[in-house]
Write a protein that binds this DNA or RNA. Structure first.
Length: 140
DNA sequence: GCCAACGTTGGC
DNA sequence: GCCAACGTTGGC
């Protein structure tokens, strides 16, 4: 199983909206970046991800699970764009802010810290564990 | 609201 | 295939 991080501006698509989709989940549409798309293509059902609020909050607020493999993005006419579906698994008890990530030397290599613009990014198992620790998440 | 960093586009 | 111009993202 691999770990990921999904970024969204809460004004556009928030954690609460994601939670409201329940077990069915929702497609992670609208991504128009090849790197991000390629990461989604490599995702498997059951992969875990963090849900991050950019711009407003700038913090990891939830844990999600990939529930459908990459398929054409319904928000685009262009067949180049694909996306996965994700569903909410758990809220992060203590949201992990970007500031916290920057200050923790164990996360200095995290893509969130090194490339702030990539909207879908891989997370290493070690980084996953650190964020879980900081966020008070157990069993994920 | 500004701007740095990054990605994409298109002329050559 | 290079690179200038432009557009977008996202932290500050």
């Amino acid at each position: 199983m691999n770990y990921w991080l999904f970024k969204s501006e809460p004004d556009t698509w928030s954690w609460d909206q994601q939670v409201a989709k329940g077990e069915i989940g929702e497609e992670w549409g609208g991504v128009r970046n090849y790197q991000a798309r390629n990461f989604m293509r490599s995702m498997e059902i059951g992969d875990r991800g963090f849900f991050y609020h950019s711009n407003i909050g700038k913090e990891v607020v939830g844990v999600v699970e990939v529930c459908a493999k990459a398929h054409p993005d319904s928000t685009s006419e262009d067949p180049r764009w694909e996306c996965v579906d994700i569903r909410a698994l758990a809220k992060v008890p203590v949201p992990v802010t970007l500031e916290m990530c920057k200050q923790d030397h164990r996360l200095s290599e995290m893509v969130l810290v090194t490339n702030s613009r990539l909207s879908v990014q891989p997370v290493t198992p070690a980084q996953w564990a650190v964020i879980c620790e900081l966020g008070g998440l157990e069993g994920y």
